[in-house]
Simulated scan of single mutants.
Amino acid sequence: MKKWSLLALASALLLGCGSNDAEDAIVETVGLNIDSLSSQQKQNYAQISTDINTLIIYIGGQCFTAESERNSNIALTGFTCNIADHKDAVSQTQFSSISLISGTLDITRSSETDFKIQTKDNVKFHAASISDGTLNYRLVDDNAIHFIVNETGSDSASFRGFFRDDKTVDVTYWTAESLGTTPFDYDEDTNSQHSWLANSTAKITGKDDKTFNWRTSATGEVELPLTE
Rank of each mutant, 00 (worst) to 15 (best):
M1W: 09
K2H: 13
K2E: 15
K3P: 04
L7N: 09
A8T: 12
L9N: 14
A10H: 05
A10V: 12
S11L: 07
L14W: 10
L14Y: 08
C17W: 10
C17F: 10
S19A: 11
S19T: 07
D21R: 13
D21C: 08
D24P: 01
D24I: 06
I26G: 00
V27L: 07
E28V: 04
V30L: 13
V30C: 10
N33L: 06
N33K: 13
S36N: 14
L37I: 13
S38Q: 06
S38K: 06
S39P: 05
S39G: 11
K42R: 15
Q43I: 06
A46R: 00
S49H: 04
S49R: 04
S49D: 13
D51E: 14
T54L: 05
L55K: 02
I57C: 05
G60Y: 01
G60R: 04
G60Q: 04
Q62K: 13
T65F: 14
T65S: 12
E67Q: 14
S68L: 15
S68A: 11
E69I: 13
R70H: 12
N71P: 05
N73V: 10
A75L: 14
L76D: 15
L76S: 11
T77I: 13
F79K: 04
D85A: 08
K87G: 02
D88N: 09
D88P: 00
A89G: 10
V90S: 10
T93C: 09
F95A: 07
S97R: 11
L100N: 08
S102W: 04
D106V: 11
D106N: 15
R109K: 15
R109S: 06
S111I: 09
T113W: 07
F115V: 05
K116Y: 10
I117H: 03
V123N: 02
K124Q: 13
F125I: 06
H126C: 08
A127D: 07
A127L: 05
S129Y: 04
I130L: 08
T134F: 03
T134G: 03
T134D: 11
L135E: 03
L135K: 00
N136C: 10
A144V: 09
F147Q: 00
F147D: 04
F147T: 01
I148D: 09
V149D: 03
N150P: 03
G153I: 06
D155H: 06
A157C: 08
S158Y: 02
R160L: 10
D165T: 08
V169R: 02
D170F: 11
D170H: 08
V171P: 02
V171N: 06
T172P: 01
Y173K: 05
W174Y: 14
W174Q: 01
A176W: 00
E177F: 06
G180R: 03
T182R: 10
T182E: 10
P183K: 01
D185V: 04
D185K: 00
Y186Q: 01
Y186A: 02
N191K: 11
S192C: 09
S192D: 15
S195R: 00
W196L: 03
W196D: 00
A198M: 07
S200G: 09
T201D: 10
K203F: 03
K207P: 05
D209V: 13
D209T: 12
T211D: 14
F212H: 00
N213G: 05
W214T: 01
W214P: 00
S217C: 07
A218K: 14
G220I: 01
E221S: 08
L224E: 02
E228H: 07
